[in-house]
Design a protein around this nucleic acid. Sequence first.
DNA 1: AGATATTATTCGCATCCCGAACAAAATAAA
DNA 2: TTTATTTTGTTCGGGATGCGAATAATATCT
Lengths: 402, 402
Amino acid sequence: MRKIDLTSFNVATSETARNINRRIVLDLIRTRQPLSRADLARLSGLQRSTISLITDQLVVEQWVTEGAFGHLPRGRKPRFLHLNVERTGIIGINVRPTRTTVALADLNGRFIVQESFPTASKSEDFIKDLIQRVEALIKAHPQMFFEGIGVSVPGRVDLNSKRLIFAANLGWNDVDFKTPLETATGLAVEIENAANACALAEIWFERRGEGVRDLVAVTISEGIGTGIIANGQLLRGANGVAGEFGHISIIENGELCKCGNRGCWELYASNSAAIRNYEGAATTTRGNGNSNRQSPTFDDILRLAEQGDIKAAQALDRMAYHLGAGLAMLTIGIAPATIVIIGEVTQAWKRIYPIIKRVIAERSPLIHSVTKIVPAEAAEKPRLRGSVALILQKHFGAPAFA
Amino acid sequence: MRKIDLTSFNVATSETARNINRRIVLDLIRTRQPLSRADLARLSGLQRSTISLITDQLVVEQWVTEGAFGHLPRGRKPRFLHLNVERTGIIGINVRPTRTTVALADLNGRFIVQESFPTASKSEDFIKDLIQRVEALIKAHPQMFFEGIGVSVPGRVDLNSKRLIFAANLGWNDVDFKTPLETATGLAVEIENAANACALAEIWFERRGEGVRDLVAVTISEGIGTGIIANGQLLRGANGVAGEFGHISIIENGELCKCGNRGCWELYASNSAAIRNYEGAATTTRGNGNSNRQSPTFDDILRLAEQGDIKAAQALDRMAYHLGAGLAMLTIGIAPATIVIIGEVTQAWKRIYPIIKRVIAERSPLIHSVTKIVPAEAAEKPRLRGSVALILQKHFGAPAFA
DNA sequence: AGATATTATTCGCATCCCGAACAAAATAAA
DNA sequence: TTTATTTTGTTCGGGATGCGAATAATATCT
């Protein structure tokens, strides 16, 4: 939609103004509901007459419903408008290496039902499973009108083919989810990288009304992913693979990464890095590299650090230090208003944030940065919300012209 | 203009469609001239009737002129349209630490006159000089209508105040060019960082019609600057200081930079770095760190390398290696269609490009990058053209809505 | 001279926003 | 209780815009 080459223009027609204003009105209702037609006119600057026409149309199309009457000291009572959460639903899918979640959300991005199942190891099996679950979900809600399916995947999506590429943690390569899902359900399917989806979810749900147009989401798990919103739009790059800051060298001639490069950021600042930090410390102090102990999980390390385990705490501190190094890179290079950190490590925010802050300050002393580093609310299920935002933005977001 | 907060909306009015289509038509004429009204209709998809109305308006406003008649095997001869290069002028200013250039350009971005003068060391003196030169330029062309003044500066510009901040190489801090220039001339003044201006110039003049919407310009002189175009727009970040990739550490605990950070990219890949490389080699081989020889300039090193001097060649090779390291970062993180290199070093392109290419390939072996690394044409005066593009984009570029 | 092809303009129509007038509804004041 | 005031929401005429068909204006080929 935003792709514009000089052969296919997005010229404006007589309906263009309505299209734009309709999106503005719909987005205002979404972010400020409940509110009256008069409120909309004041907020948008459009005439009340215009607002009436647009809202009536939205009500007819069942995007919006009229609710209770408001109360004012004088004058006619305003009729409040809401998004229609009864009728319109969006299916959000979050694919992760071990488990996949399928959920039904309303227009407010609230989840009505949600279920998860193990991610099959072969992509063909997985697609079969997925279609079955989605079809069951649709059948279970016959009264609902489904607006589309958003999918968040732990890998990169080719901009043209919409096929999944580089899904290192899944072990799949060049897989097409979109076509089979679309043919099976008849719904529009949008696929996006998980970090991009998180970034979208942040400006869409969390920071609504803050006017944030530059934001970076950093997902930290086995690896590190970054999703960048610049000027209010996802930075996808020429082929859709922008944002692989996790695979930028922060240590010259460092360890070899599975991406083939050396010294990648995610080698030093991911959950796996903390585990290696911890195991390195544990084995050296015990002088026994061959112990048969099970590797600790990252959750173990978080728990141990919380309980006062020094080695675990040091492992986290080291991870935080390197997180700071990479975040300094993003702060200096992208200068977003906000960087949102997504991952289990945010449970130890009190421990890691001062370290991150110090490292960033050390590395950009003259550039008095405006970037705020904040943890994502774990309860918000950022990846899943992002997959919902993928569909919402098609109707609520601003269109592009050239 | 693109700043959109939720209190001041860009709602669409009845004139919005015309505004959009007018920009499309004007940009088509700019990039494809000469062409007829019928050509415009075919290219844009608008009706010929609509094109007639728009072009007539553009002719009346003197943006466009009607030129010669075309020739066709059959049918009525088309009347060619051109940008009006006679009447409308743009003043471009390129501020550099040693010299400043003031130029008058036509709507095609071709320079009609151009003069340069030494940059005064005190900012107040400089502004006085500048205003005098600009006023003389305006007086010398009384028949011309001036559309605005674009200024490219070697530093960062605060997004809100439009004041110059961080101009390390100028030694100025927090200077306001815009207000005095605007009050003196009565023209609209746009200020932008030099690397950003170069990036703008590239998509505006050089890559026109290629449909490139993601591009990075890297300016290499005493330091390194980066200007990023993402989704067709300048990446400015929350406060306008995005793009300082020159000050990202590529060597952990490296040398101290004047920015206060350690191991910054520009310490290893700028012209100054090559000079240090050369001098380090020269002194160690001669075993004399105290020789009173004058430091060579970067141009000297380029010349020496060209003449077969091994130490100079090695200094350039080292510079190229580190250039590659930083460009790999941009390739992986931003994934633009094109990275344009601006600077004297492009004179040694044959030497440095293979090194750059190898380093990038080594650092992103699995991400088969689509990014092309190209040298800017030195003759094109990228900074100056960028300052012109700053003004042009206000009339030709796509508007933003939300 | 007539047919054909191509460019450019004209005109009626539909869409859309604006703004003023109006209708509806609720409270305050007389 | 009646009237004035205030606020919400609708209606209607006017102006701007793009569309598409018809028409005018050229130019070449047959």
